[in-house]
Computed example of a mutant assay.
Amino acid sequence: MKKTKILIATAILGIATFVAIAADHIDAPAVSGGTSDITDFYAFQGSNSSNIAFVANVQGLLAPGSTAAASFDENVMIEFNIDTSGDNVEDLVIQAIPRDGKMYIFGPVSPTQAGLSSTIMTNSSNTAVVDITPYGQSAIVASSGGIMAFAGPRDDPFFMDFAQYGEIIAGNATSFNDPGSDTFAGTNVLSVVVEVPKTLIGGSGTINTWVETKRKQ
């Protein structure tokens, strides 16, 4: 589970884009390489300053040769959690569920319960559905009620020089090289992007936001 915090500003303020990032490409052996493995989480103001975008990447370190065969696991839900009251408990969720080549989006909506178990919020008035973009094709983006969504493979956006990081941890170096060597260059992830109007979240103030993957039981 990745957690981060993002500041929401009203559209009137027109502040510069604020970016929040959390990344974890190499998990424990029981999780690494699994279809529920989260590699990155991003939250930032959209190109339309009235919107906020949430991005979750899963199934990292996909080689180009294997990306075309990779697919979202239909037994795994990606859930963006949004805490608007500062108690570190989700007040809103955005759920992304793959089915038959499409990604179904439910929310932002108040969940029936907080915590590790979730109910699919099919009764949400905020919904969208988008065709999952095949590997190597132009991005397919769907829009519904002000919500925009994308799902599909993308080039891994995270930059990290793990070899130099290892040298620093070992005490053999004190800083990263400039330029460094991107460990993730040439690898891909499966990405879900949901952009929503800030008014669906609360409009202004500070929120906590994190992402989880939850497997169907």
Rank of each mutant, 00 (worst) to 15 (best):
I120H: 10
V211T: 07
V193I: 15
F54Q: 02
S144I: 03
A151S: 08
A22M: 09
V31H: 10
A149S: 14
G34F: 11
T35V: 04
Q59A: 14
A185I: 04
N126H: 13
L200T: 06
P179F: 02
I8T: 07
T84V: 09
A185P: 00
G166H: 04
V19T: 15
F44P: 00
S204C: 01
E195L: 06
Q137T: 15
I15L: 14
A142G: 07
I21V: 14
N75C: 10
Q45R: 11
S32T: 12
F44A: 08
N57P: 00
S175K: 11
Q137I: 04
K198S: 04
P134Q: 04
V192P: 01
V194W: 06
V211C: 08
I105R: 02
D182Q: 05
V130G: 02
I168N: 02
P111G: 08
A185E: 04
G180I: 03
G186P: 02
G34W: 11
A142K: 02
E74M: 06
S181Y: 11
A151D: 07
A23D: 13
M121L: 12
D40C: 09
M160A: 15
L190S: 05
V129C: 09
Q95P: 05
A28V: 12
Q164H: 11
E74V: 09
N57F: 01
T133Y: 07
T112P: 00
S36V: 11
K198R: 03
F106C: 06
Q137D: 13
G14Y: 01
T213E: 08
E212H: 14
A22F: 00
V93A: 11
F162I: 15
T35S: 15
N81Q: 15
F54D: 07
A68V: 12
A70C: 01
N57C: 14
T213A: 01
G202V: 02
V76P: 13
R99A: 15
I168W: 10
T206P: 12
P64E: 07
Y165K: 12
E195K: 04
I8Y: 03
I8H: 05
I120F: 12
R154H: 11
G86W: 08
N126D: 10
D156P: 09
F80R: 02
Q164T: 13
A53M: 00
T209F: 07
Y104G: 01
G86E: 10
I168R: 03
G145C: 09
V192E: 05
Q217L: 14
D156H: 01
M103R: 03
S117I: 12
G101E: 06
T213P: 10
K3T: 12
T187K: 03
P98K: 06
A56P: 00
I26G: 10
A170S: 13
A23L: 07
V19A: 15
I26D: 13
N51E: 15
G115H: 05
T209E: 10
V130I: 04
I201F: 05
T119I: 12
I52T: 10
A173F: 02
N123Q: 14
S32L: 13
N123M: 08
T10A: 15
P64D: 10
P134S: 04
D100V: 08
P179S: 09
D156M: 04
A43P: 09
T35F: 00
T112S: 14
G33F: 08
G171Y: 04
I105C: 06
F106Y: 15
V196D: 09
F54I: 01
N126A: 07
G34H: 12
K216V: 13
S117H: 10
T133W: 07
V194Q: 07
K2N: 13
I38Q: 09
T4Y: 00
